[in-house]
Nucleic acid binder design. Sequence first.
DNA 1: CTGTTAGCGCTTTCAA
DNA 2: TTGAAAGCGCTAACAG
Lengths: 342, 342
Amino acid sequence: MSNKEVTIHDIAEILGINSSTVSRALNNSTRVAKKTKDKVFEKAAELGYQRNHLASNLRKSKTFTLGVIVPRISRHFFSSAIAGIEETAFKAGYTVIICQSLESLEREESIINTLLSNRVDGVLVSISMETKNYDHLQGLKQRNIPFVFFDRHCDIANNSKVVIDDFEAAFNAVEHLIAQKSKNIAHFSGPQNLEIYKNRFKGYKAALEKHHILYREELVISSSLMEKDGATNVKKMLALPYKVDGLFCANDVVAISAIQYLKKLHIKIPEDIAIVGFSNESISSVIEPALTTVNQSGLEIGVASTNLLLDKISDKSKQQTHKTILVKTNLIVRKSSLRDSK
Amino acid sequence: MSNKEVTIHDIAEILGINSSTVSRALNNSTRVAKKTKDKVFEKAAELGYQRNHLASNLRKSKTFTLGVIVPRISRHFFSSAIAGIEETAFKAGYTVIICQSLESLEREESIINTLLSNRVDGVLVSISMETKNYDHLQGLKQRNIPFVFFDRHCDIANNSKVVIDDFEAAFNAVEHLIAQKSKNIAHFSGPQNLEIYKNRFKGYKAALEKHHILYREELVISSSLMEKDGATNVKKMLALPYKVDGLFCANDVVAISAIQYLKKLHIKIPEDIAIVGFSNESISSVIEPALTTVNQSGLEIGVASTNLLLDKISDKSKQQTHKTILVKTNLIVRKSSLRDSK
DNA sequence: CTGTTAGCGCTTTCAA
DNA sequence: TTGAAAGCGCTAACAG
């Protein structure tokens, strides 16, 4: 019932030494005798001492806490990114506060306030689709709290980010469709305030150009890439006065829901229409063998962005250097996603 | 560059009052004049004051932090549970430390230590498959830190948990197969140290009994229900000297990988074999229309278990009462998962 | 190598 | 209704 936690003072008193010596010992300072250190560790273990991080952090005015903002935890890409973040942070002695913006700018702002009052040492953020105004992020900057974007970023000045090479990935994806003899290639595109969707669009366009295929505006169908958009987009696509035989989707959610809808209409994939989309290998192979995917590893991006952030945190004194890490991707092509070319 | 955070002392000094008055005002104490309160709030807003939770929590020896232990963040069930937990905790002013055991007992133990030294106010835990020894959980109990199990639990005395009604769910699932004229119904089962898999097994058995179908031990194939187990289990099942025409899977991962493998062998679902498995509706409808699913809502369980935990935290003074919340499920049957009964 | 001392920012008695 | 003062548990100067 009596639940006093053991403190360094308790240990000090029992051992007849000063609490600061205990503190030093526990922190493995070189300025303490091996013998004392041993005694301290032994006693600490015996009493079941656990450092009180609150007190320690208050003193050091450092929280060893990172904030993470994602649109939605349950999206597979983000949950695997979080797994990578958590893993990397944990190893470095950091804990992580995870928040979801649910694609709302308002929530994103309120989250940043919460993170500020939790005195996080740094922030990882993948911005919401709604975010077109970046004042709240400037707030972080003013308070000198390092942050890095991962995946979804925006083009405010001087920031660090970890993103996949969207332009190249999209370019390769569309070339893959062209190699499969697609002539009229549609693109289910996302909000153009997000750099990633902008770049995916640019890659799409560039691939068409390279192969002297006419770019047609009406083939680019924009949406917020949710599950509901699959069917809607497909309808728009089928309403075009010519036959679309290739489709490049800017994310997995819309790709999969589009495929479901196409199947319902008995449109054959990839015979009638070949499809390539961004996705996580692990999930897409299970979900939809007919989908060629740009392999998008959340885990890898999570790890890389956390490492970058931790670097920035320990580098705070120096002039901040801003880095962009481009994660390269590759296409996962399954047999079932290939047209018979006989 | 100078980054002194604003403190209550700063506000006090400017206003020519004492910092404890500021503290009381900011905490909306009744024992402070309305006029002073207004002045304080105004000044606080003006200076961009943000309460330092570290200091506040140290003083109150409360962290407003919950620990969450799940086997793997990126599993959809858990990521949606986390979404629910995060949401509920956030609203109540709590933050959440999320840790993954990766199905390892050793990691689970070390996580508990980390959570202890972070002085979490409570813990939500879904135990790993490897966990057969509960000493580390007893440690929480000794320190008087409330915890509740969600989904995966074990039968140590006096604990609270939020779980779906596994027995009933399994029973209904198997009855559904029987209604579809399955005679030889296999069960891909999980580790029997976990109550949920035990209960799912019991439900399976009970449904067979009710319908006077002989229970055969060899139809129950146990594994750790990973992706790799799908194919292995199917092979074992096909090696039986009679034809299996129904399959009840204890989780979605194994169900989906089994389905993929069956398809590869050109075995038809549900014509040759009808399948039902536990899963999340949202994902399974997209993934595998041939799968009838026991709808398992992570979000709902996350919310319920967090509420229960928060109750326990504020009730700490009273005798702890231990509660089991049973979340009811329903079957999601899609047309494509039904045998033609003509 | 060890002890003394001060204080991180806040809350909370106890007095006034 | 407000102020003074103590202290949560730890770390970091500084002195010895």
